[in-house]
Design a protein around this nucleic acid. Structure first.
Lengths: 342, 342
DNA sequence: TTGTATGCGTTATCAA
DNA sequence: TTGATAACGCATACAA
């Protein structure tokens, strides 16, 4: 019932078999070839291959005070937005000899804190985090240990970490202008809870601002829904539909997750898009192309956000100061059938 | 331009401040409280809290020959099927003090081999892998080092690793019976390349077998499409439509990815589901509910597959022999509008 | 060009 | 109940 753990081949075995000292092998591993005689080098090379030796990264890390591990803490691993970013970050990691330690917090601040502690114990060389935005004690600690941190998507005002995201204000403004051109009587904004999540707040603020600036009749139609609670979205949706009876209307979804739930709810109500209700949402999930005559979306360069985050970490690891406090990519409005020819 | 790396607090610091030896602190860390005087224990506890000390997992791992790291190699991190499994595996990891090292191979055997080598260097305590199925040299090596491996979804005949997946044959058979009841003139099977991927082969085989068993006129309509090549799917689709002109027809999609591409293609062709063509697919992506009157799908217990995989790893780590060579969960046919009332 | 000795932070063995 | 010491696998300062 015990784990037997057979002894793995070590640098010592290689040294022994190659007839050199551990130091020389270590030099080879470090790529300091100028300090090694060509024949010795060849001998070590062959020995390593024949023994199938792999240097122990933990031992190396203990000595060098690095782990070659990058922590990636995400709020929702099921969200395609998240995986797209992971994909980008992972590619850059791989190109630079790092590996991603992925943690899924389910938007739970407590889990987030626990995970960050675990990652610290692993002595991660950097952290990319899509934070819950609440209760960021552990996150603050990282600054004290000066391990490189990059926030993705969501900012935390009280923390001075670099953040990478999109131009939410501009993206929403563009999209809203598109909606306003169509002269809807009512435009609603459906979002997950705003508390703590900067992205949602920025989008909601831009939404409201555009409506006011255009003297639009509806301004109060911001609905916060709790997707973990069955029926919450449907209730708010029915409320809005009742409120706007007989009026032309559109809904702006704060992200791809809310967007999908809205589409499903509308389908259950047998409402047609865009005839009964126009629909537009942040993120550009693949299925947006497949629903009806397509859903109008705001596409973020998710992969690039992921690569940029990891590249920023690399810069910090190298000791280069990065000056940009907030890097925002521009998003792109993709107009499809869900907001046109109604 | 150098990484400054300030010294972290170590067990030595704790011992010093608490006025005990490293050994005693180590005992505390190991939870051997019976060997410690209550007052000493309290003192250590307080010291650790005040210093915010976190034991270095690398150092511990070097000594204990463990890393608390589980490798997770996936073929396509963008696939919701994959993330659902990761979610399950990650939950079990977290409950047991392990962390997931996630690697995305993009279905590239070479990347898979490289990643496995990296993971070996990290001395992972176990590996969960959704393999490309080809060129599994590195995978074979792991057996030699006897690190626990569990294959997910795809089997590899030449390897003796435990595998966890679904009852593909039965699931396809059930679904096919549902289609056959509707008396379609033609039923086609759209899949990504079969080579090396056991799951696809099993599903295609079951598809064919049911058709033959029922003396169904169409049997040769198995189309392998290459999703990375623009237009490949559309070409095959047009070919099938041409072949089956004037006949009633259905398409069986091998997985959620192909299913989505089919929906998009059909929408581009302005074909209506299920009037012009019925559609059914493996996996049950969330959007399946949102397209038309819903897409009929075969739902896999993905989360459970993930947890089962990780639990199997844990058993192996504990040294328990696991006897089941192949564990298959049952899938569930969810009938929706895409295959009914045409 | 190569080797010896030391230490990274932790656990384990042994002794007190 | 506690502590001194060695060892895990590797990299590095210093010698040769």
């Amino acid at each position: 019932m015990e784990k037997p753990q057979l002894p793995r081949v070590t640098i010592k075995d290689v040294a022994l078999k190659a007839g050199v000292s551990k130091t020389t092998v270590s030099r080879y591993l470090g790529g300091n070839y100028k300090e090694i005689a060509p024949k010795t080098r060849k001998r070590i090379e062959d020995t390593i291959a024949s023994l199938n030796y792999r240097p122990n990264i933990m031992a190396r890390g203990l000595k060098r005070n690095t782990s070659n591990l990058i922590g990636m803490v995400v709020a929702d691993i099921s969200n395609p937005y998240t995986t797209a970013i992971m994909r980008g970050a992972e590619d850059i990691c791989n190109q630079n000899g790092y590996n991603l330690l992925v943690c899924n917090t389910d938007n739970d601040p407590e889990k987030e804190n626990d995970y960050i502690s675990m990652l610290q114990a692993h002595r991660i060389d950097g952290l990319i985090i899509n934070t819950t935005g609440r209760n960021n004690e552990a996150l603050k600690d990282l600054a004290h240990d000066d391990i490189p941190v990059v926030l993705v998507d969501r900012k935390v005002p009280s923390l001075e970490y670099d953040t990478i995201g999109v131009e939410n204000h501009r993206a929403v403004t563009d999209a809203m202008h598109h909606l306003i051109e169509q002269n809807f009587d009512r435009i609603a904004f459906f979002t997950e809870p705003l508390a703590g999540v900067s992205t949602r707040k920025e989008r909601a603020a831009a939404f409201e601002q555009v409506l006011r600036a255009n003297g639009h009749p509806s301004c109060q139609d911001i609905y916060e829904v709790d997707l973990s609670s069955e029926g919450s979205l449907m209730d708010k949706l029915l409320f809005f539909l009742e409120e706007s009876k007989g009026q032309t209307k559109a809904i702006f979804a704060v992200n791809g997750v809310v967007l999908l739930q809205l589409v499903i709810a509308l389908q259950q109500l047998n409402l047609s898009i865009p005839k009964d209700l126009a629909l537009l949402g942040f993120d550009n999930p693949e299925w947006a192309l497949a629903v009806g005559s397509g859903i109008t979306t705001i596409e973020q360069p998710t992969y690039e956000i992921g690569t940029a985050a990891m590249e920023s970490i690399l810069q910090k690891i190298k000791g280069n100061k990065t000056f940009s406090q907030y890097t925002s990519f521009s998003a792109r409005l993709i107009i499809r059938g869900s907001t046109t020819n109604n």
